[in-house]
Simulated scan of single mutants.
Amino acid sequence: MSWTTLLGFGHQGWGDELLRGACLSLGISISAYLVGLALGLVGAVAKISRNRVAVSAAVAYTTIIRSVPDILIIFLVYYSATDALRWAVSLAGLTSEFQLNGFVAATLSLGIVQGGYSTEVLRGAIVAIPRGQVEAAYALGLTRRQTFFLVTVPQMVPLALPGLGNLWLVVLKESSLVSLIGFTELVLAGKMAAGATRDYFMFYCAIAFIFLVMSGISAMLFHALETATVRGGRKS
């Protein structure tokens, strides 16, 4: 059977499965990236705060994330979260063989990993903003919250975009790790196709090509976003 048939759509081809896997990989990556941004923003604010407990918690979080292998965190979240939810269900007097959804587990685990790295990227961007900007905002009567969202965040985004773009490419590639908990994303779909047809080289090359296309489009989008924010900053 020719490679065009195997990679095609329909009954004989595996194109449908690969496309579905690619969409799931993108969905996991986007969800995890957003979770990571939220955690990273909280962690960055905690690191630059004057609260020692918040600083210590943020430092411990980023240290653990940068020290523990990502796949181990995926396993910990998948299995420990399932056990925790089962325990909570049992406390409510219910009996259920609860299993954490693969998509949710993948999003949480990769999001937690991304949060650790996003914390450092966002913290560096915030620290790079001249202190006089914040002091001027306070002098004008703005509250801490108003200063953060009206002064700090608009200047933080252009500074953080290059690092955040790199983190997006990382989480896009790391979405393949969730195949180890049985979630059928792009890599597992390709592996199943390769196993069924015994044409490993072709399908693994196809997977690599799809990731290359997604990464290339992502890089172009982030570059356009960076250019737009720089131009917007100059005009303002």
Score class of each variant (00 low, 15 high):
Val113Asn: 09
Asn51Cys: 08
Ala58Glu: 00
Arg50Met: 03
Gly43Pro: 02
Lys47Val: 02
Leu122Met: 14
Thr119Asn: 02
Ile74Phe: 10
Ala88Asn: 15
Tyr78Leu: 02
Phe98Val: 00
Glu97Met: 12
Val121Asn: 05
Val89Trp: 13
Val53Lys: 08
Ser67Gln: 06
Ile65Leu: 08
Ala54Met: 10
Val55Ile: 08
Ile112Glu: 05
Val45Tyr: 06
Gly43Cys: 02
Gly115Phe: 04
Leu41Ile: 14
Thr63Leu: 09
Ala106Arg: 09
Leu122Asp: 03
Ala44Phe: 03
Ser90Leu: 08
Ser109Met: 05
Gln114Arg: 04
Val113Ile: 15
Asp83Thr: 14
Ile71Ser: 00
Ala92Met: 15
Ile64Trp: 15
Ala88Phe: 14
Arg86Lys: 15
Ser49Lys: 12
Gly43Trp: 01
Ala54Ile: 08
Phe103Ile: 15
Ala106Pro: 04
Val68Ala: 06
Arg50Lys: 07
Gln114Phe: 02
Val42Glu: 06
Asp70Pro: 01
Val59Ile: 13
Ile65Lys: 03
Val55Ser: 03
Ser96Ala: 04
Pro69Cys: 13
Ile73Ala: 12
Ala58Gly: 01
Ser56Ala: 15
Thr119Ile: 04
Leu72Ser: 06
Leu91Lys: 12
Thr63Gly: 05
Leu76Asn: 07
Ala105Phe: 01
Pro69Val: 13
Gln114Glu: 15
Leu72Asp: 08
Ala84Phe: 12
Asn101Gln: 13
Ile112Trp: 08
Ala54Asp: 02
Leu91Trp: 13
Leu91Glu: 13
Ala106Phe: 07
Gly116Leu: 09
Ser96Cys: 01
Ala81Asn: 08
Gln114Met: 15
Leu122Ala: 07
Leu100Ile: 03
Thr63Val: 04
Gly116Arg: 06
Ile73Tyr: 11
Lys47Thr: 03
Ser49Tyr: 08
Asn101Ala: 12
Val68Thr: 13
Ala44Trp: 03
